[in-house]
Amino acid sequence: MKYLDWNFITKYAPLYAEAAKLTVFIAFWGILLAFAVGVICSAALYYKVPVLRRIIQAYIELSRNTPLLVQLFFLYFGLPNIGIVWSGETCAIIGIAFLGGSYMTETLRSGLESIDKIQEESAASLGLNKWLTMKEIIFPQAMAISVPGICANVIFLIKETSVVSGIALADLMYVAKDLIGLYYKTDESLTMLVIAYLIILLPVSIIATLLERRMRHAGFGN
């Protein structure tokens, strides 16, 4: 490691810190929105709401079968033509929410569907209405079962934010590419890039592993 230029690294590390903030900002709001989308859509699918269900299924197919970068290009460069002008950050957050929403929906839906029908029936036989049954009985269990899947989605979505440099947002990738282009300090720039992503992703990944392990051991199983 001694051939790395440490002066360069200390000089430009703050730039990476700034960029990491943007990456985390986009990931945080995008994932939060994605989760909200997932809760609503999975509930609609679970209750088989007539028309909405078809629309959601179409949305899932569309979102899962197209790359985020292409979605972002369409949002950022395409939509202004019909009068929808969003900032790069907004596009990035909406893009992550659009992509992540379908992944969260699928995860939560399979969680909801894995709950035994008898749970719903015994709640009904105790006089709980649909809302109480969902809130008290079905949703908490489905959430617990979905934890590993949700964690995997979160990690996946954080990684996906790396493409937002494609719409000129100054995230980690953008900074790295910039520094490589300007100073040819390739090794230093890339090392800092890898370290920055490790700092963001490793804790999330470790928490995910711990949660998953806890889930497996505590398992509700009757």
Binding site: I155, S162, V163, Y184, T186, D187, L190, L193, V194, Y197
Partner: peptide, 19 residues
Amino acid sequence: RIMPQLVLLFIAYFGVTRA
């Protein structure tokens, strides 16, 4: 798995080429 694919792509394209 933990690295975004784009980072890997940068390493291969910019990093290895030069190193």
